[in-house]
């Protein structure tokens, strides 16, 4: 099965800062991939690039077999709840219904099938009883459940989640975690960012980043003491020469089982 995402020698700048230096990685189809790394290591940058929200400065990135911008309608991106202000007067149902916009566009009226998908998403996230609540009346965990419901109400083949469990109450975290692990059963690929090693270990595939992708493979292959020390102990590795000096001989497994060095080669 082809990879959902194939990135080759990707460099991404945000303003005058290199947010992700030359990196290559693949994201397997129908699996859960966790991107882990310290703050400012490029985790959200990778998600934004996959979602087609951030242009890449060099290299290539293929998402679901095409350019990221052209694959956007098949990609659902759940932002951190704290990144979305709850000021817009929306009820929970309306917020989840917005997930259907990628299919409905600006003008088409929702059909019964659209309404059923919204109801199913709300039921999965256990927020049906909150349907008429205003977003500002919800706790952080409840809002995150609403945004995940919005994400899965959208027709998608690839689900991106930016730190979906960070700062949540146990009940919301459990509910969202169950949804994440159910997505591959529906044929969807999942990519999430996390700071939590346990969460990363529960994934099928892990990408470790520290200003550039320093390792990718199964959790056992990537979450080693040496890799974690390199990624977290040294901070972000923005300078290519420094990274090459730090990882002269280390190799990592790609999703296809091939060996990949720190820059993916």
């Amino acid at each position: 099965m082809p990879s959902a995402v194939i990135a080759t020698d990707v460099v991404i700048a945000r303003g005058h800062r290199i947010a992700l230096d030359r990196s290559s990685f693949q994201i397997p189809t129908g699996k859960i991939t966790a991107i882990i790394g310290p703050n400012g290591s490029g985790k959200s940058t990778i998600l934004h690039a996959i979602a087609g929200l951030l242009p890449i400065d060099s290299g290539t990135i293929s998402v679901l077999g095409g350019e990221p911008e052209k694959s956007q309608r098949s990609v659902s991106y759940v932002l951190q709840y704290a990144a979305v202000p709850a000021g817009t007067p929306l009820t929970v149902t309306e917020a989840v219904q917005m997930g259907r916009y990628s299919t409905l566009g600006a003008f088409r009226r929702p059909t019964r099938a659209d309404r059923e998908k919204v109801a199913a998403a709300m039921a999965h996230l256990e927020i049906t009883d909150l349907a008429k609540r205003h977003l500002t009346e919800l706790s952080g965990g409840q809002r995150q459940r609403v945004y995940v419901a919005q994400g899965i109400a959208q027709d998608h083949a690839l689900l991106l989640l930016d730190e979906p469990l960070t700062g949540l109450d146990l009940n919301s975290a459990k509910t969202i975690d169950a949804i994440i692990h159910d997505e591959p059963n529906r044929g969807c690929s999942v990519v999430l960012t996390t700071h939590d090693l346990e969460e990363a270990k529960a994934a099928d595939y892990v990408i470790l980043t520290a200003g550039r992708v320093v390792a990718c493979g199964t959790p056992d292959e990537v979450l080693t003491a040496v890799n974690l020390t390199n990624a977290y102990g040294l901070g972000a590795l923005h300078v290519r020469d420094e990274a090459a000096a730090l990882f002269p001989t280390e190799h990592h497994h790609g999703p296809d089982g091939h060996q990949h060095g720190p820059d993916g080669h």
Binding site: H48, A51, G52, L53, Q72, R73, V75, S76, Y77, L79, A83, V84, T88, L90, A95, M98, Y101, S102, L104, G105, A106, F107, Q154
Partner: peptide
């Protein structure tokens, strides 16, 4: 209405939704 609502909600989400 939908493009403006999506924009008010979140610009990045609006872009992903094709609005």
């Amino acid at each position: 209405y939908r493009p403006l609502l999506a924009l008010s909600f979140n610009k990045e989400k609006a872009q992903i939704w094709g609005l």
